[in-house]
Write a protein that binds this DNA or RNA. Structure first.
Lengths: 217, 217
DNA sequence: AAGCATGGATAGTGCCACTATCCGATGACG
DNA sequence: CGTCATCGGATAGTGGCACTATCCATGCTT
């Protein structure tokens, strides 16, 4: 198909498709002549993935490019490629190591990870965006005076571990390796709004249960 | 204290503080003369909250203003004010109701909420940003061909319900009503990066467990 | 042969979160 | 009392980002 049809099928404007091609988010079409290219279903699918990452997942374009590049990099091993999405976290604003509150938060997180038996408190884990974001969040909570020790984080960590099991099961249902990589990216990012929305709905439900008349009317 | 000291204590530049004052994110100081104002600890605290919401929570400035206004609105009842933060979700891009995929996702979500016994499938719940974001996310997952039925969402919903209980417990620990409102906002928003980070770390851990040599070395 | 769609390049738009500059008034100090 | 730094308010500007609009030569279609 041509660009116009690709646009129609994916619901993305031709201008935006050209932009994504420029930015390397969408693989180029098969050149059919000097000035024309042919696109297929893989392009439609990629476009849908990219749109989902950017719009729903709020992943910046530059980050999405990196994630996709890592996912396609055949030289990396399976585990690393599955982790590609993990390294593209919104990446909170680099909490400076000088701040004593941040240092304390770091110790808390390390203790937490040790407690649940994860290996990320080692040299590699310290650098992961997820780790640093976690530390920054804990430090912010503490600065506001909310308790946020290992005991408070533990239920969250346990639930996260449960989710990881079901998520990985879902990923491993994919037959091909490429499919697993894409699934890892898509499921990691797209289940985040699901999880956050459900948490907020649950908050509302629980709040209603505690503060309103017990009947729903 | 004066603006300069407020800036120093909070770590926010005077220019940004003025901006927040203009935008109504920070309450004005006590006017001490025609051209000078006095700030106190409540301003420092508010600034920390605002920075946390905006930087860590990625809440847009305009939304943060609405949240804070709702939290301070004495005319609302406790439950609604606790829900203030909930209504300020990133608010994904308005999935159009015409799309059959979205309609199907809506049915799935309604079935899910009914299944777990929440009341949000009623007239009010349909409008909530969390609900609409959830529907959009489910629709996107489906469009990419990933299964996302009630069965898949149920574990997420159950975990969300557990989190809500511990979160509300934490909120109710606050002695004053104003404290509870602020805690609801802060904990709702600031535990989101915690939760997402932990989920990503758990993914990495689980992936390592499945795809790498069993020893951590 | 006519005419329009295609794809590539380039510059522009709108939004957002600040940030830099200017200003008159004021307070602090010798 | 004069001088001068500081304060708070207003306004305009900046940089980044995700597009988007325009132009143009090519070449496919009829």
């Amino acid at each position: 198909m041509r660009l116009a049809e690709l646009s129609e099928r994916s619901g993305v404007s031709t201008a935006t498709i050209k932009y994504y091609l420029r930015e390397g988010l969408l693989q180029p079409g098969r050149r059919v002549s000097a000035t024309q290219a042919e696109y297929d279903d893989t392009h439609v699918r990629r476009l849908r993935l990219v749109r989902a990452l950017i719009q729903l997942g709020k992943v910046p374009v530059a980050t999405a490019r990196e994630v996709i590049a890592a996912a396609e990099d055949e030289s990396l091993d399976h585990h690393l490629r599955l982790g590609a999405a993990t390294w593209a976290l919104p990446a909170g604003p680099e909490a400076d190591g000088d701040d004593p509150e941040v240092a304390a938060a770091g110790r808390t997180v390390t203790a937490l990870l040790e407690h649940v038996g994860w290996r990320h408190d080692q040299e590699l884990g310290e650098l992961s965006p997820a780790y640093r974001t976690l530390v920054a969040a804990v430090a912010a909570l503490r600065r506001l005076g909310y308790p946020c020790g290992v005991a408070h984080l533990l239920p969250y960590a346990r639930l996260a571990a449960q989710l990881a099991v079901t998520d990985l099961d879902l990923i491993q249902e994919q037959p091909t390796e490429a499919g697993q990589i894409e699934a890892a990216v898509a499921l990691t990012v797209l289940y985040e709004p699901v999880l956050l929305s459900l948490r907020r709905l649950a908050h509302s439900e629980e709040s209603a249960r505690r503060f309103m008349d017990t009947d729903g009317a």
